[in-house]
């Protein structure tokens, strides 16, 4: 099952921040982790990850540096302090939102 684009773009920012909060990674690594974790539900077009990463970097939520990983120089991203604060807030918002959605959906007896 593939997910509607609108859901994806809204939550991609939080998902990327969350993955980088666990471990600094480069773009391709992130895509692979994202696919594995979501059982291929988040099968986004890989190229669209980079505008998200560059936006997060412009907003100073993540930072990047060129590092040699398995024989190649790669642009590795890591989360900043500001990024961690934003992630914590967005997680909380997401939790409240999903609880509310679930409550409405289960009310009908689904």
């Amino acid at each position: 099952m593939a997910v509607d684009k609108g859901y994806m773009s809204g939550s991609a920012r939080m998902l990327v921040l969350n993955l980088l909060n666990e471990k600094s990674q480069y773009g391709y690594e992130l895509i692979k982790t994202l696919k594995q974790r979501s059982n291929d539900v988040f099968d986004m077009k890989e190229g669209t990850l980079y505008p998200i990463l560059h936006k997060l970097e412009n907003d100073e939520l993540i930072s990047s540096s060129n590092q040699e990983v398995s024989g190649r120089v790669r642009k590795v991203y890591c989360i900043t302090d500001k990024g961690q604060r934003v992630l914590a807030r967005e997680r909380e918002e997401w939790r409240e939102f999903s609880v509310a959605v679930n409550q409405v959906l289960t009310f009908g007896g689904i």
């Binding site: 077009k45 890989e46 190229g47 669209t48 980079y50 505008p51 560059h54 936006k55 412009n58």
Partner: peptide, 17 residues
């Protein structure tokens, strides 16, 4: 193919650059 449309990706990147 998995990367998506290069014009679309490029335009999104352009917004950040």
């Amino acid at each position: 193919e998995q990367m998506g449309n290069p014009v679309e990706v490029g335009k999104l990147l352009n917004q950040e650059h």
